[in-house]
Design a binder for these strands. Structure first.
Length: 822
RNA sequence: GCGGACGUGGUGAAAUUGGAAAACACAUAGGACUUAGGAUCCUAUGCCGAAAGGUUUGUGGGUUCGAGUCCCACCGUCCGCACCA
C-alpha cells in the first residue's frame, strides 16, 4: 500500500544529510545555471498557508526539473522577519519578538521541509539577524551619502492602531494595509527615501522585464508620469504668484478660478482680511480630515474663497482664488487652475460655488474664445500657448518619496546620530551593525517615537565627530527594508566584509524566475527595484534590474469560492492535508487545480483524484496491490485472454503487440509533453499528461510493462511528487542514488509523433466523417479517401463542388455550389 | 468614473493558437469484488432524441470554406487605479 506518512519522513531525512548538501548550489557555477527564487515568507504565528505552498511548489518543480536537465540551480529560502506582524503577534502573546520570531521560523522551516521543497538550506538568511541587517543599514548609509535619504517634516499617514507612520504604498483606500484602521494625517519629522529621483528609470526599465502585464501596469500607474506645464498667475495687488501645474495648457483661456490646497503656503498670505476667519476655519477642518474622509466625499466638493484674485496670463482676466481640499498639496504645485468646461472635477466645483463656465475647445477639437489661437486644433496649440503665457514644460509624477521611519521597536535601527552641534552624523561603516537593543517594554508608545527612545543608555551617545553629547535616531526601518535586497545575500550569506562578492553576484544575477503573489506589485517589487538601481550605480551589482521574469500565482480560495479567512471559517490547513494524503498529494493537487496564475477554489474531493493517481503509480511501479488488468477490455468481449493470461487468442495477441508499440510511443509523447509543459509553467496539463500515460499503462497486462516504462514515469513524476518518486526509484527500482540526481529523460521526435491521424472530412465546414489516414498524405490522396466514405458520398451526391480546402494532417473540406446549411 | 483581464458541461478545467469542443480530474448513475466500503476495478455521463440525427463555448451581429479562438456592440464577473490637475 502507498503510505505517504511512512515514506515521506524517510526521504526528508535522506535529503537532510549534511545540511541538505544534495541541493547546495555552487557559488560560481561554470555551466548552465538558473536562479529560481520564491518570495520569502513572513514567519507569522499561523504557519504555512496553502497559498505559500502553491508558489513554493511551482518553484520547486522548476528547480528539480532544471537540476535534472544538468543546470546548476540556486533555490534558496529565508525569513523576512522584521515588521508589524511578528511584533503584533508578540504583543498579543506577551512574548519577546525575538523569541517569537525564532519559534515561528523553526516551525516554518519544519513545514517547508515536510513539503519536500529542495531548498539550499546552507544559504538560509534571516533579516533580523545582526549579520544580515548590518548590510541593510549599510545600504541605508549609501542612500544617505548619495542624497537619497533625507529627514523632513511632512504630512504623513499615521495608523492610530499600529501607532506608526505608513508609506503611501501601505495605505489602501485610506486604510492601513495591515489592520484596516482609517489612517489619519499627521505632520512629523521623518526619514524619507528619495525614490522619486529614480522615477524615470523605474518607469523606463519596465521594458526590460518579462513580468505580468498587470504588474507592469500597476507600477506604471503608481509612478504616474505626466508631462505638462507650470504656469504662474500673478496675484492682484500683491507681490505673489500662484504657480499651477497643468497637462492642458491649451485650455488656459477657459480658466475661471484658481484653487490652492489647504496646506499651500500662499493661503494665509493672500487671503483678504475679512475672509481670514472663514479660510482659517476651513483649513483647520481640512487638515483634521483623514484621507478616508476626504475620499469618501466623492464628487461632493468643499471650498472657500480667499477674497483674492489673480490675473490669467492668457487673457488678462481677473479670476478668484479659492481654497479647496480637492487640490492636493503633494502633487504638482499644490495649486490648480480651474477649467470647469473641460475638467469634470472643476465642473463639479464650479457648479457648487456658482463660478462661471467657459468653453474654449469645441467638439472638433479646435479652440474658441482663445484670442489669437481661435480655430487652431488644441493639440497643435499647446506649445504656442505655453510660450504665449510663459509656461515652463515640466514632468510630474504621482510617485512620492518613500516615508521610511517607523515608530516601532521591531525593525532595523537607523544608523544615524543626531548632534546638536554637527547635525546628522551617520555611523561609520565599521560601527555596523547597530544592534537593536534588548528591551523589556516594546509596546508602541504612540508618542511619535519608537520605544527605543526610552532606553537612555542606548539613545545617549557621544557624537562621533565632536565628541559632544548626542542622541541616536530612535525610529526604525519599515518592514520592506530587509526584503529590498535579500536575493543578493543568498549569493554570499556569510560574507562579513562585503554585502555580496561581485564575482558571485555576476555569476548568478539577475534572478531568472521569481514567483510570488501579486500583492507586492507596488510595494516590495518597487522598493527592491529602487534599491537595486542605487547598488547598480555604486557597482555593487552588475544588472540594472533584479528580477528578469516574474510569475504571480493566483490565490487559492476557500471551498465556498471566497477568500480564505479565519472569520469565514474556510481556511484549509496544510497540516491536515499532509496528515491525510501526504505532502506529495498536496503538492500535486495544488498544481493540478488549474493554471498557476488563476484564482482557484479549493475542493476537498479534488485532492482525492491525485491521491488515487499516486496510489495507481505506486502499485504500478512497485508491482504490488494488483488488480492487474486481466479482465476483458470493454463491451463484454467474448474472446478474451483467460484469467492466468497464458492462453491468448490470436486476436488478443495482435492487439497486445499493438498496445505495446503504442505504449512505447506514448512514453516518448509523454516525455515531450511534460517537458514542454514544465518549461512553460503549465503544471496542470503536465500532470494530466502523466495521468494519461498511467491510464495507458493500465491498459496492458502488468507483466508486459518494462522497466523503462516505469523509470520514465518515475523520473517525470519526481519534480511533482518527490517523496514517492524517491521511494520508487530507490526502493522499488533499486537505484542507488537520488532520483533528483538523475538525468531528465529524452524523447525521440520520430517516436513522439503519430504516423497516422484522423482526417476530418467536412462538407461546407460541417464534419461529416472522420477517417484514419497516414500522416503526410497529399490532397489527392485525401480526396480519394474522403470520397470513398459512404457518409460523405451521401452528402456530395448531386452537388457541384466549388472548392476544396485541404489542411495537411488535419482535414479536408468540400465546398459545394449550393450551401444547404446556413 | 477610468484602465485591464476574463466568460467553455453539475464542478476545476483542456483545446497544437483559425482546423475533430469538452482531454485530465471531481461529482453523479449503474455494475464487479467484498462481512463491509466513504477502498479498488469496470461502464456511462454537454444538451435534445429510442435511434438516425440534430444541437452546443455569456447574448446579438460580422469576417471566413471553417470561429471557443479574429472584429463590432451589448450583458456579466473579477482585479487594479480612483479628486494625480
Amino acid at each position: 500500500m502507498y503510505q505517504p506518512n511512512k515514506i515521506e519522513p524517510k526521504w526528508q531525512k535522506f535529503w537532510a544529510k549534511n545540511n541538505y548538501k544534495i541541493w547546495h548550489a555552487q557559488d560560481k557555477p561554470k555551466g548552465k545555471h538558473i536562479y529560481i527564487l520564491d518570495m520569502f515568507p513572513y514567519p507569522s504565528g499561523e504557519g504555512l498557508h496553502v497559498g505559500h505552498i502553491e508558489g513554493y511548489t511551482a518553484s520547486d518543480i522548476l528547480s528539480r526539473y532544471y537540476r535534472m536537465k544538468g543546470f546548476e540551480v540556486l533555490h534558496p529560502m529565508g525569513w523576512d522577519a522584521f515588521g508589524l506582524p511578528a511584533e503584533n503577534y508578540a504583543l498579543h502573546t506577551k512574548k519577546n519578538p525575538k523569541q517569537v520570531v525564532a519559534q515561528n521560523i523553526k516551525y516554518f522551516r519544519k513545514q517547508l521541509q515536510q513539503m519536500g521543497f529542495s531548498y539550499d538550506w546552507q544559504r538560509e538568511i534571516n533579516t533580523t539577524d545582526p549579520n544580515y541587517y548590518k548590510w541593510t543599514q549599510w545600504i541605508f548609509l549609501q542612500l544617505y551619502k548619495n542624497g537619497l535619504a533625507y529627514e523632513d517634516e511632512v504630512p504623513v499617514n499615521w495608523c492610530p492602531s499600529c501607532k506608526t507612520v505608513l508609506a503611501d504604498e501601505e495605505v489602501v483606500e485610506g486604510r492601513c494595509e495591515r489592520c484596516g484602521t482609517a489612517a489619519v494625517r499627521k505632520k512629523l519629522k521623518q526619514w524619507i527615501l528619495k525614490i522619486t529621483a529614480m522615477a524615470d528609470r523605474l518607469l523606463k526599465d519596465l521594458d526590460l522585464l518579462d513580468w505580468p502585464a498587470r504588474v507592469k501596469t500597476m507600477q506604471k500607474n503608481w509612478i504616474g508620469r505626466s508631462e505638462g506645464f507650470d504656469v504662474e498667475f500673478k496675484v492682484v495687488g500683491q507681490d505673489a504668484y500662484v504657480k499651477v501645474f497643468t497637462t492642458r495648457v491649451d485650455t488656459i483661456f477657459g480658466v475661471t478660478y484658481l484653487v490652492l490646497a489647504p496646506e499651500h503656503e500662499l493661503v494665509q498670505k493672500i487671503t483678504k482680511e475679512n475672509y481670514q476667519d472663514e479660510v482659517k476655519d476651513y483649513v483647520k477642518k481640512a487638515l483634521q480630515k483623514s484621507d478616508f474622509e476626504r475620499l469618501s466625499a466623492g464628487k461632493e466638493k468643499s471650498g472657500v474663497f480667499t477674497g483674492a484674485y489673480a490675473i490669467n496670463p492668457s487673457n488678462r482676466e481677473r479670476v478668484p482664488i479659492w481654497v479647496s481640499d480637492y487640490a492636493l498639496i503633494n502633487y504638482g504645485t499644490g495649486a490648480i487652475m480651474g477649467v470647469p468646461r473641460h475638467d469634470e472635477r472643476d465642473l463639479a466645483f464650479a457648479e457648487q460655488f456658482h463660478l462661471p463656465v467657459k468653453e474654449v475647445v469645441v467638439s472638433d477639437g479646435t479652440l474658441i474664445n482663445s484670442g489669437p489661437f481661435d480655430g487652431t486644433p488644441y493639440k497643435k496649440a499647446q506649445e504656442k500657448i505655453a510660450l504665449y503665457v510663459g509656461a515652463k514644460k515640466t514632468v510630474r509624477y504621482k510617485l512620492r518619496d518613500w516615508i521610511f521611519s517607523r515608530q516601532r521597536y521591531w525593525g532595523e535601527p537607523i544608523p544615524i546620530i543626531k548632534c546638536e552641534k554637527c547635525g546628522l552624523v551617520p555611523l561609520k561603516e565599521s560601527q555596523l551593525p547597530l544592534k537593536l537593543p534588548e528591551i523589556k517594554k516594546y509596546e508602541p508608545t504612540g508618542k511619535n517615537e519608537s520605544p527605543l527612545a526610552d532606553i537612555s543608555s542606548w539613545v545617549n551617545v557621544k557624537c562621533p565627530r565632536c565628541k559632544g553629547p548626542a542622541k541616536r535616531e530612535v525610529n526604525t526601518m519599515p518592514q520592506w527594508a530587509g526584503s529590498s535586497w535579500y536575493f543578493l545575500r543568498y549569493l554570499d550569506p556569510k560574507d562579513n566584509k562585503k554585502l555580496v562578492d561581485l564575482k558571485k553576484e555576476k555569476a548568478w544575477m539577475p534572478v531568472d524566475i521569481y514567483i510570488g503573489g501579486v500583492e507586492h506589485a507596488v510595494l516590495h517589487l518597487l522598493y527592491a527595484r529602487f534599491w537595486h538601481k542605487l547598488l547598480y550605480d555604486l557597482k555593487i551589482v552588475s544588472t540594472p534590474e533584479p528580477f528578469v521574469r516574474l510569475i504571480n500565482q493566483g490565490i487559492i480560495l476557500g471551498e465556498d469560492g471566497e477568500k480564505m479567512s479565519k472569520s469565514r471559517g474556510n481556511v484549509i490547513s496544510p497540516n491536515d492535508i499532509i496528515k491525510k494524503y501526504g505532502a506529495d498529494s498536496l503538492r500535486m493537487y495544488e498544481m493540478f487545480m488549474g493554471p498557476l496564475p488563476f484564482a482557484k477554489p479549493w475542493n476537498s474531493q479534488g485532492i482525492i483524484g491525485v491521491y488515487r493517481f499516486l496510489n495507481r503509480v505506486w502499485s504500478l511501479v512497485s508491482n504490488s496491490d494488483l488488480p492487474l488488468r486481466e479482465a476483458p477490455p470493454a463491451g463484454g468481449r467474448q474472446s478474451s485472454p483467460n484469467k492466468n493470461g497464458l492462453e491468448i487468442t490470436p486476436e488478443a495477441k495482435k492487439k497486445l503487440k499493438e498496445n505495446l508499440k503504442e505504449i512505447e510511443k506514448a512514453r516518448h509523447k509523454t516525455i515531450k509533453k511534460v517537458t514542454e509543459d514544465i518549461e512553460n509553467l503549465r503544471f496542470n496539463t503536465a500532470i494530466s499528461t502523466l495521468m494519461e500515460y498511467v491510464n495507458q499503462l493500465y491498459e496492458v497486462p502488468r507483466e508486459k510493462i518494462n522497466k523503462q516504462h516505469k523509470e520514465t514515469l518515475v523520473l517525470l513524476l519526481s519534480p511533482f511528487a518527490p517523496h514517492l518518486a524517491e521511494e520508487l526509484w530507490q526502493a522499488a527500482l533499486k537505484h542507488r542514488k537520488s532520483v533528483g540526481l538523475e538525468r531528465w529523460p529524452v524523447f525521440k521526435s520520430e517516436l513522439a509523433e503519430e504516423n497516422s491521424f484522423i482526417l476530418a472530412v467536412q462538407i461546407n465546414g460541417k464534419i461529416r466523417d472522420k477517417i484514419k489516414a497516414q500522416k503526410g498524405i497529399d490532397e489527392v490522396q485525401a480526396q480519394k479517401i474522403a470520397r470513398e466514405s459512404k457518409k460523405v458520398k451521401k452528402y456530395l451526391d448531386k452537388q457541384k463542388i466549388k472548392k476544396v480546402i485541404f489542411v495537411k494532417d488535419r482535414l479536408i473540406n468540400f465546398v459545394t455550389e449550393i450551401k444547404n446549411n446556413k
